[in-house]
Amino acid sequence: MRRDKTIHAWLDQRLSPGERERFAERLAAEPELAATAEEARRVQHLLRALPVDQPPADLADNIMRQIRTAPAPMVRRWAWWQPSRAMMLAGATVAVLAAVMLVPRDETATLAATQLTETDRRFVQECLRDYHYEVSTRLAGSGAAQRAADATLEF
């Protein structure tokens, strides 16, 4: 009887109005169930009546003292404009462009290239120009930027 799940749903007030009404009828008709439900309610009361444990007064100070000696858990957000990352980005761009240019051009490739529409070609060129502008303004004077510029213009 102590394993009647409805008692626990009743304790947590998770019964619908209809279920609550039916359970009340059962409680009235079944003394054993009513006794078990009352005991379950008393158990819950014993748990809730336990006093809250108070932490030592100096706990927060002790924690903060220890925290101050630890390195700060700062979040490093990914930023492409940081010099090292921008260099990597420029280098990767150059590598990709070089790879594209070094691939032997056979008839199929030429045919595929000629199948690009003028709109596609213009779009690709605009993208590369924008990207080159971003990189070169961030890395004015660096060799990587110059190589990226050369590759872009050559393309």
Partner: peptide, 23 residues
């Protein structure tokens, strides 16, 4: 704030939750 380097802001979280965690 803590993630931005303000270590002392963690004190606010400690004071807010120390009793619940301790209990």
């Amino acid at each position: 704030r803590v993630q931005s380097g303000d270590t002392e802001a963690f004190g606010g979280l400690v004071r807010r939750y120390q009793q619940r965690v301790y209990s």
